[in-house]
Design a protein around this nucleic acid. Structure first.
Lengths: 245, 245
DNA sequence: CGGTGGATTGAGGTAGATCAACATGCGTGG
DNA sequence: CCACGCATGTTGATCTACCTCAATCCACCG
C-alpha cells in the first residue's frame, strides 16, 4: 500500500468528526475537531478550498502572511533554515492543524506539503473578523495554540536532551499517537518524509537516522515495509527506547 | 550592581508602558504591552497580585491548572524534566509574559522564579470569561501565543542545528533583545540564571557553557562583571558568532 | 574567616558527525 | 512492461565537538 493511499484512506473512517464539503462533495476531516458543528459551518463558508500537489510550497519564511490555512487532508512540513543551509524541521502537520497564523505581517517559517493535500484557506482579515465575532472560537484557537506550544516543548526536550535512539523512537511514537488522535491509520504508519527530513526534525544526520532505524529493525522493534512505511512490532520496547517520561 | 538591582531598576524607565498598581501603588510593567489601556484596566481588576520570592516554584508539571499568571516584575524559568533528571529549560520569561495558560486541565511544565518577582494571578474560569466577553483581547492573546511559538521555533533551531558557540551567542543576544523590547536594562545584561540553567536552556553542559563564556571573554567579545552580569563589548562579533540568520 | 555551592579549568572518552563507497528503488522513456 | 539512470537510502571507517570525570577556584553568607 503506498504512502499516498495510506494517507487518503482515513476518509472512510472518520465518521463523527467529518463534514461533507459543500464544494467538492468529499467528506473531509476539518476544524470540527476543535469547533462546534454550527461554528464550523460558519467558518467553512468563509474558506477557499485548496488542492495542493505533493512537495508543493504553501508559503516561505518572509512571505506576507495574507492567509491562514487549515489542513484537511495530507501532511505538511514546517521548517526554518539558516542562510548556510542548515535546516530545522519544526513539525509535521496532520489534518486538522492550522497553518500560518502569525503575530506579525510575515510568515516566520517555510511550509511545504509532503503529500498531495487539501486545505481551507482564509483571508487573514476575514479570519480575524470571524474570531472577533465568535469569541468562543477564539478561545478554542487559543487552546489549540497552547497545545502546539506544549508540542514544541516536547520537541525542545527531544532536541536538547535526548540520545539519537530516543529521538527516533520518540518521533515514531509521536507521529503514531498524533495520527491516531486524528483517526488516521497508524499501522503500518506512513512516513511520507525523507530520511533527510527526519534528520532535520530530530537534529541528527541522515546517516544516523538510517543506522538507528536499521538497528530498530534488526532488534525486531519495527518492520520497514518500505522506506516510507513502518510497522511497530514491539510497542513496549519502542516506548522504553523513547526514554523516561 | 547586583542582579536584583538591575532587574528592579527598569521601573523608572518604562514610562508609557506602565500602569500604577491600585493595590500596592507601585508602577508596574504589565499586560498593557499587549492590550488597550481600557481593557487592561478591566482585566487587572480581576487579578490577585502575587509577590514571589527568589527561586520559588510557581507551579509544577502535572499540577491542576487553576490559574493563569501574568508576570509583571522579575524573571521566571519554564522547564520540563525527564524522570532520570535530564532537564530542558524552555525559556526565561520577562515582565509582560503570560504563564500557565493551558489547553488541558494540568500544567505541562515547571515554572520557577529566578529572582524576586511579581505577577498577576487570574482564576482560570474568570480569565476565560473575560476572553469570551472581550474577543479583541482573545485575538490579542492569540497573537501573543503565535509569537511564543515563533520564539520556540528559534529555540528549536538553536537546539537542533547550532554549535556550542552559536548557542551561547544566540542566547545572550536573544536575552538582550527581549530585555530591550520590554525596556529593561541591557547593559550590563543581568544573568540571574546559573550556569546549569544556561546549560539546560542551550542543551549543553555547565562545563561547555563556562568554557564558551570564558572564550568570549578572552576574545574581548564580552566582559563578565560578575558571574551574573555580562557586558557586550563587541556586538558585531557576537552577532557573527551567533551564526547565519 | 571558614564553609559551601557554584564556576572554572584540565585530561581523556565517546556519541554522533563526516567522508566515502555502495545499494536500492522508483520514475521515465523506450 | 522492462531497462536505465538518478535520487534516496544504507553501511563502513574515521574524526571531532562536546561530554564526562576530576581537581581546583572563587564568591558569598553565616
Amino acid at each position: 500500500m503506498t504512502t499516498t493511499a495510506l494517507l487518503h484512506d482515513f476518509c472512510a473512517r472518520r465518521g463523527d468528526l467529518a463534514a461533507r464539503c459543500r464544494h467538492c462533495g468529499a467528506r473531509e476531516f476539518n476544524i470540527c475537531q476543535a469547533l462546534d458543528p454550527g461554528l464550523q459551518e460558519k467558518l467553512f463558508a468563509l474558506a477557499l478550498r485548496l488542492q495542493l500537489g505533493k512537495r508543493e510550497p504553501v508559503f516561505a519564511a518572509g512571505d506576507p502572511a495574507h492567509y491562514v490555512y487549515n489542513l484537511t487532508e495530507g501532511m505538511v512540513c514546517l521548517s526554518r533554515s539558516l542562510a548556510d543551509g542548515r535546516r530545522q524541521i519544526l513539525g509535521f502537520l496532520l489534518p486538522g492543524d492550522f497553518i500560518g497564523f502569525e503575530a506579525g505581517e510575515t510568515h516566520r517559517c517555510d511550509a511545504e506539503t509532503l503529500t498531495e493535500a487539501k486545505a481551507c484557506r482564509f483571508e487573514r482579515a476575514v479570519f480575524d473578523g470571524f474570531l472577533q465575532d465568535n469569541p468562543e472560537t477564539a478561545l478554542r484557537l487559543l487552546r489549540m495554540a497552547s497545545s502546539e506550544l506544549a508540542q514544541a516543548a516536547r520537541h525542545e526536550v527531544l532536541l536538547g536532551r535526548k540520545t539519537a535512539v530516543e529521538r527516533i523512537a520518540s518521533f515514531l511514537l509521536d507521529l503514531r499517537d498524533r495520527s491516531g488522535e486524528r483517526h488516521l491509520r497508524t499501522q503500518p504508519l506512513a512516513l511520507p518524509m525523507t530520511r533527510s527530513e527526519i534528520a532535520d526534525y530530530t537534529g541528527l544526520t541522515i546517516e544516523t537516522v538510517s543506522r538507528v532505524l536499521g538497528r530498530l529493525r534488526t532488534d525486531k522493534v519495527i518492520e520497514l515495509a518500505s522506506t516510507s512505511a513502518v510497522r511497530v512490532i514491539d510497542e513496549a520496547a519502542l516506548e522504553r527506547m523513547a526514554g523516561p517520561a
